[in-house]
């Protein structure tokens, strides 16, 4: 069985994302210089053969830090999105399938939460509980949960009285099995398509928190941190310190957007040929 050829936008998205994954994996075993140690070169050296992306104020190698940062930015985005997808869809499926008081309880909680601006919420929580990779992941996934829950609820609700849901009950499935084994897989298209938008959003917020100094330890080579460290240089001509991490964020966000429907396609046998 072969799949229909993917659109060019999706191929480009997949290639860029693949490059980031490769970069993250390589950085686990090798970087040109130690990304954490300052003074591997003079401060504010422009891009050269020795330091391809230059050095920052503390004389750290920007390329090494950028590579190591991929672990954080990509890792946080992926884990936060998967967590939000799993928890949000589960809540949505339960609300959509069982309806009644369960639905009202879940839907109202979700709506109340959505009335908060997500980024502001993330800043407040991180400020309160302190920085750290785990905290950031939890907060960012929490922001995504309502969207997944609402999407999953709408999808499941529109399908719960379909004949194949009735048929699933008739062949001996319990109601939770009908909801999660039959209805949820058929609702995955829009959910997976949304993960790309959500992942792009999460990457941006991760970097924003880092830039505002609310994210990880300032010495961590997270891209937002790196931009913050280089922001003085933008005015005085040392553009490379902030520019390359910025470009990395742009590339990753863009790649997630480009992926879009490709993810939904992967889950649907009808789109295979």
């Amino acid at each position: 069985m072969t799949r229909a050829p993917l659109a060019w936008s999706m191929r480009i998205g997949l290639c860029i994302l693949g490059a980031y994954v490769a970069l993250a994996l390589i950085s686990l075993v090798w970087t040109p210089y130690d990304p954490l140690s300052p003074g591997v070169g003079d401060s504010f050296l422009p891009p050269s053969v020795e330091f391809p992306l230059g050095t920052d104020r503390l004389g750290s190698d920007v390329l090494s830090r950028l590579m190591a940062g991929t672990q954080y930015n990509l890792g946080i985005a992926l884990v936060a999105v998967i967590l939000a997808l799993v928890i949000g869809s589960a809540l949505g499926v339960v609300a959509g399938y069982y309806g009644g008081a369960t639905d009202i309880a879940i839907s109202r909680s979700v709506e109340i939460f959505q009335a908060f601006p997500g980024v502001l919420f993330a800043m407040l929580v991180v400020k309160a509980v302190g920085p750290g990779v785990l905290n950031i992941i939890l907060v960012l996934s929490f922001i995504g949960i309502p969207d997944y829950a609402r999407l999953a609820r709408a999808e499941v609700q529109s399908r719960r009285n379909w004949p194949y849901a009735e048929a699933a009950r008739m062949v001996g499935n319990r109601s939770w099995q009908v909801a999660f084994r039959h209805l949820l897989p058929n609702s995955m298209g829009p959910l997976l398509a949304f993960t790309s938008i959500n992942a792009a959003f999460v990457s941006l917020v991760t970097a924003s928190l880092g830039f505002l100094g609310l994210g990880l330890n300032p010495n961590t080579p997270e891209w937002g941190n790196m931009i913050a460290r280089g922001q003085d240089g933008v005015m005085t001509g040392e553009w490379w310190v902030s520019f390359f991490p910025g470009l990395a964020i742009l590339g990753m966000t863009g790649a997630f957007y480009l992926l879009g429907d490709a993810l939904a396609d992967l889950a649907d046998p009808r789109r295979r040929r």
Partner: peptide, 25 residues
């Protein structure tokens, strides 16, 4: 719920639209 699941071993249904009553996945 358990009793109903058991009951559906004794009585079954063939649906009108086979397209809508088979899970597409």
């Amino acid at each position: 719920a358990l009793g109903l699941a058991e009951l559906y071993g004794e009585v079954q249904m063939v649906f009108q639209d086979p397209n809508a009553s088979l899970n597409p996945r």
